[in-house]
Design a protein around this nucleic acid. Sequence first.
DNA 1: GATCGTATCTGAAGCGCTTCAGAAGCGTCC
DNA 2: GGACGCTTCTGAAGCGCTTCAGATACGATC
Lengths: 353, 353
Amino acid sequence: MSEPPRRPTLDDVAAAAGVSRATASNAYNRPDQLSAALRTEILRVARRLGYAGPHPVARSLAARRSGALAFLLDASVSTAFSDPALSITLDALATAVAPAGDALLLVPGGDAAAAQLREAHVDCAVAYSLPDRAPVLRVVRERGLPLVVLDGPARRGAALVRTDDRAGAAAAARHVVDLGHRDVAILGTPLRTGTDGGPVTAEQALTSRYRVDRERHAGYREVLAGAGIEPAVWQAAGISRPAAARTATALLTGAAPPTAVLCLSDELAAGVLDAARRLGLRVPEQLTVVGFDDTPTAAAADPPLTTVRQDLTGKGRLASALATDLRAGRHPHPPPPLPVTLVVRASSAAAPR
Amino acid sequence: MSEPPRRPTLDDVAAAAGVSRATASNAYNRPDQLSAALRTEILRVARRLGYAGPHPVARSLAARRSGALAFLLDASVSTAFSDPALSITLDALATAVAPAGDALLLVPGGDAAAAQLREAHVDCAVAYSLPDRAPVLRVVRERGLPLVVLDGPARRGAALVRTDDRAGAAAAARHVVDLGHRDVAILGTPLRTGTDGGPVTAEQALTSRYRVDRERHAGYREVLAGAGIEPAVWQAAGISRPAAARTATALLTGAAPPTAVLCLSDELAAGVLDAARRLGLRVPEQLTVVGFDDTPTAAAADPPLTTVRQDLTGKGRLASALATDLRAGRHPHPPPPLPVTLVVRASSAAAPR
DNA sequence: GATCGTATCTGAAGCGCTTCAGAAGCGTCC
DNA sequence: GGACGCTTCTGAAGCGCTTCAGATACGATC
């Protein structure tokens, strides 16, 4: 194995073109600072030497900016991405930052997250629905990184993007109450990792580590309590559709099966539909199921899910805009919560009598 | 808004601790190069000053390594992640590189991909099932980045991780042939973007831009042709389950409905199950459906999918190992194709007579 | 013809760190 | 008592680039 030849640097290009390094640099960064002819010549020489452009790391060091944002996840990659709401939001964010040449550095949850972020070549962090005391946020503070928080937790100095989850949940609950349901269950995400799923107390649900979950539970409860309904609250075995199906099977075959299930996400709701189908329960005649988020899963479900729509794409784009402000040293006004809409489809109907 | 105070540097720490910069550096990077007592003292001083550790970018420039790999996707984030096979592979890769402090920079397909990679602070790239002439690979070459290719396309100098897709497809086809099916359809991924889905010729399928697809189509064809069967080959409207369901509805209600559908992924197969259910077709009695990959979707489907298992986690781990070799300047031996296994579940049965 | 503005290019000072070749100090060994 | 080997620490040379304050040249301006 021969030693790989040293890659050319900007100095090599400058020397070969007979100009100063500053001029060679300007050929790449400030075309208006040199004559067009010379610029062309420099780029031609660069190509001849096999120079691929200024070294990104050196460029960042000198210019004090890096072309990447850290995207902080709560869970492992496969777990986090088992809810399409994440993909959609992330997609919008990635698409919004791409034109500026920026990319996203994926920092999954886990033991290594803090160390990864400590070494990350980023000048901004975007947190996606982290639990209240995520250790990785400490590194964000220590490094003094601008922070955009999606969904929570709130942090001083950070820009918070949130949806009016409570109002959305309230609308969903109102919907099932109006349909005459009295035996209502709420299916939420796992309150702690590694659970098999099952009933929890309303208090436990309201003190979830995730802001979004707390808000949604609170919204449901608000309306249900107002209607004199004490819902059964269950945590699913995971956030994926199959995990929800497992838990829903237990819920629907339990001692006091509900006639309506309010779910904290569309994936969970789709899992409930799967479980109901296997149990021979007809939706919506015998069981009403309501989701949350209005991901493609909702419209494609059988029957199509009644759900609470939130603008996931707008969320990602807003995060990008806030990150841009923060990186530029501007301190944007806190945006208002993004609105939600109840979308009534075919998975909800009057309570069986 | 006051000017933010300049963040302390290693020089500040060294000065405050009364040592040279080299020693302060060693406190972080080579604990064996200084006395434990002094090291503790230096770190104490650092904490007092609010020094968060060596600046990652400067560190990378000096040490000539960066703590990140680029993960190159063919499509947008939400599209790419609509197949869990990607999440699982990516998860394994991310988990494997995390202990070394490395993270993954997400580079989605699209116009900005090349520019993003040109600016990326990475010292290795991992390509996930890119089409044959992905423009982003040109930047990989220009920058001289080590490259690990998952599934394809092969590139000289790159480490290629592949699965024995052809054998897997052949096994799936053999299975349905042995069950007596003669009217067989193949449901593949879109051959070009933006298609509505529909029939394609066998030749078109065999010249897909994706190596994996070519191999799987070839494997099916090999066995089917040997049995004298000319399958109907369809491309789905997308790689997601709902997209597959749409196309499958057309396929199953067409002029010559198949009794068995071989699908290029589990998501596609799940979509076929959805379509069949809505059409009142019983699986497997009236229709046999076979998937590919054995993602969690397969086992959780109703009925559970017969599919071809490949070791997605192992694939991600192998990619990590190869990347490590490449980054260290070692040139690993080309690994053999990862093995596949046919997993027979409840979605396949003898052809209706 | 002196002054000025403009377009173009350069020198040099960093950006914040790693690392290598020593230097210094000190106990050991024969 | 001098050579030797350790451990511990330092000086200085980069890593490859951006950018700012000039320098230079030249046609325009009054």
